[in-house]
Design a protein around this nucleic acid. Structure first.
Lengths: 333, 333
DNA sequence: TTGTATGCGTTATCAA
DNA sequence: TTGATAACGCATACAA
């Protein structure tokens, strides 16, 4: 069941079979037919491993992300996959849980496997793991580039998103806006917070420290952080660095007997499918996650094809989706 | 940067380097150290493609599923991945959207790539695509085996789940229980419906045809189906074949001015994270999706290791998670 | 237009 | 304990 058997069956050489397979070089029409017939008859499928060996590529890319279970990522993954298959590439899925050891393990495995490129969504890629790696292999950083490593970046504009969310709340007359952050040191979260602070500054406000609590992007941490905040002060609004935490916080707020949005207006981030299903429906900053994934993959495939291309940075603008959790009735702005 | 350079650097033959790499055969301690040093110095990483070539395996498995965007699948995917990496395997992610052409494309690509096995979650695997395939390659069918193809199966017990959900509603005194199905011909949905009918039968009931509508497992179809049902009859309960549709239906029910659960009690399936976040919180049949994924992958890895193993069928029991959408206050049963 | 022969980077067999 | 070398299955340069 190799190219040899096909060649024998068709009464030609392996070179001719190979030419037929790859439509390369000249093959007489009649010979071509004989080869095709042999391939059909033997159910021959070329061996991609051998092909990779001689061609020096695997037509495979690695997708490294924190956790596909976080509802922000599935759409992004689909974008990556769609862009990949459009060009005949396959995608290897790697969930790291933001664990540096897991990241390192996957990096090592992917390298051995000779993937052609990497779409890398990392909480905080440690330069030391990654430095040499990015030199050997095309890598596109999604959302969070590692410090000190140049390279292609595709990301949502978290700074703008944080700003939009906060400005919206301020424009509603809110003055004591709580903030629940993501994991410490995570640029995504820090940028959203920077936007939060800029909006305050613009309005001549300074958010009190007691209004901020730290989460880890998971539902439970939203509950915990909100309880913490309510335990020490009285906000009239909340901006959470993602929807999962916002939904957790929402539960706590309502359980505490506060009305949303009357007492506390709530805004999340990511606009996951379930934001609109919450009661009240959650106002959220939407990122074009499918597009981000799609673009990231296209960028890395471009670079695979042309290593010498200039570095690309693509930033996608978020939009604020206003719903009942911040205003009586919903609308998009 | 190949094994040759390492051999030269260490002053040994490639065979010795290979022995060090694979801890196979005898190597003098001192030689071993020299080789290790050379590997370090040259940052050598063995080429997995070449290794695959000679070993005849790729330590890679394909994960074929309908749509990772459906919240039921991310946990399953994590289970698969965790089982895979535990044994040094990588996972290739393939979303098919239940499209037979897409399935066929992925099947072809995965085969060329020489994956060692397949975890196959298919809406309705077409035997013709798949038949020859499953003979060449270890495949474990998740949830839905193709008719006429023997093989390992790991699945949730949908029949039991449908039964539990419906019996629960009947025990609550409901008699006009609507049902929203999944895609036609999909065994997962059909089994849940069988359970729905058995529970009726046991109670001496026969559900009217007007109480059933067809969906496609997506949120919007739940809305549509529920509107359809409400347009022609008056149910006092709803069992939807998955949570996404149940949530869609819930929106329509509440919008129609019905109270939940007083007027219409609602039960979904899958117990996705957001079931508990709905208002009222959604009663749902929970499947151990992580465990199903994990087990499926373990089964296929077992078969890769030992082709002659007897066929395995593993069925996981679902549990009913009762929440406010069917009863005043929540509890698990 | 077709065939021969080499090499891709390993592993594994056999000799030494 | 180590080394030389033949596969693995294909693509391709070169010859014919």
């Amino acid at each position: 069941m190799g190219i040899r058997e096909v060649a024998r069956e068709a009464g030609v050489s392996v070179a001719t079979v190979s030419r037929v397979l790859n439509r390369s070089g000249y093959v007489k029409a009649e010979t071509y037919q004989r080869v095709i017939a042999a391939i059909r008859k033997l159910h021959y499928v070329p061996n991609g491993v051998a092909r990779s060996m001689v061609r020096g590529n695997t037509r495979t890319i690695g997708l490294i992300l924190p956790d596909i279970t976080n509802p922000y990522f599935p759409m992004l993954a689909r974008g990556v996959e769609d862009a990949a298959t459009a060009q005949g590439y396959l995608v290897i899925l790697c969930n790291t849980d933001n664990n540096p050891d897991t990241e390192a393990m996957y990096l090592a495995m992917l390298r051995e496997k000779c993937v052609d490129g990497l779409v890398y969504v990392s909480a905080a890629p440690r330069a030391d793991h990654v430095q040499e790696f990015a030199q050997v292999l095309p890598v596109v950083w999604v959302d969070r580039p590692p410090v000190g490593v140049a390279g292609d970046v595709v990301a949502g504009d978290d700074f703008l998103g944080g700003y939009l969310a906060t400005r919206h709340l301020i424009s509603l007359g809110r003055r004591r806006i709580a903030f629940i952050s993501g994991p410490a040191g995570l640029m995504t979260s820090e940028e959203r917070e920077r936007g939060y602070r800029l909006a305050h500054k613009e309005a001549g406000l300074v958010p009190e420290d007691t209004l901020t609590a730290h989460g880890d992007f998971k539902f439970e941490s939203g509950r915990r952080a909100m309880a913490e905040i309510l335990g020490r002060t009285r906000p009239d609004a909340l901006f959470a660095a993602n929807d999962l935490m916002a939904l957790g916080a929402l539960e706590v707020i309502l359980a505490a007997g506060c009305r949303v949005p009357e007492d506390i207006a709530v805004v999340g981030y990511d606009n996951i499918v379930f934001a609109r299903l919450a009661k009240p429906a959650l106002t959220s900053v939407e990122q074009p996650s499918y597009l981000i994934g799609l673009t990231a993959c296209e960028v890395v495939l471009e670079r695979i094809a042309r290593r010498e291309l200039p570095v690309q940075k693509k930033l996608f603008k978020p939009t604020l989706v206003v719903r009942a959790s911040s205003q009586g009735e919903g609308q998009t702005q």
